[in-house]
Design a protein around this nucleic acid. Structure first.
Length: 158
DNA sequence: GCCAACGTTGGC
DNA sequence: GCCAACGTTGGC
């Protein structure tokens, strides 16, 4: 089995927050509703069971990485896209030819302290982080080096 | 609430 | 295949 890889998932806490994840049954939830092709490709092709995920809160006064989740089920069709009642309905996607994919993630931990976007911007080693230069990508890879650095910023014992 | 950035759509 | 128009994201 290959080493786990690292990702960052963004969510607006008003729609789904880290504590929402923690309070789900089994602390597990489908990461549905992603409607961007590059993010879809990560979900469908790259993200594997066991990979670790930074949970980022966006669209708030102090956007920040607030916690860690782990992938417990890898890429499968996002069935929300088939529900005409859903905001994420997309008639192009069908069970026979799904367009959109999701993974399931489980709550792992809350960071000892959140690492804010402003802090991240101050760190030259993180300049390549997609969060800082591809700010609209909602599912993005994090290098092992960046992962460790951010954990240290968050006060996690290394 | 504003608006810049940028991904997506669709006319040509 | 280009690119203008449009819609959405997300920082501020």
């Amino acid at each position: 089995m290959s080493a786990p890889r690292y990702w960052l998932f963004k969510s607006e806490p008003s729609s789904f927050s880290l504590s929402d994840l923690k309070n789900r049954p089994d602390a597990t939830e489908h990461w549905d509703g992603v409607r961007n092709f590059q993010a879809r490709n990560f979900l469908r092709d790259e993200i594997k069971v066991g990979d670790l995920v930074f949970f980022y809160h966006s669209n708030i006064p102090e956007p920040a990485i607030v916690g860690i989740a782990q992938v417990v089920r890898e890429g499968y069709p996002d069935f929300v896209a088939w529900d005409p009642q859903s905001n994420y309905f997309d008639p192009r996607s069908t069970p026979e030819k799904p367009v959109w994919f999701m993974v399931d993630v489980r709550f792992v931990s809350e960071l000892p302290r959140p690492v804010t976007l402003n802090e991240l911007k101050e760190i030259p080693e993180l300049a390549q982080l997609p969060l800082l230069n591809r700010s609209r990508l909602s599912i993005q890879p994090v290098s092992a080096e960046a992962w460790d650095l951010i954990l240290r910023l968050a006060g996690v014992q290394g």
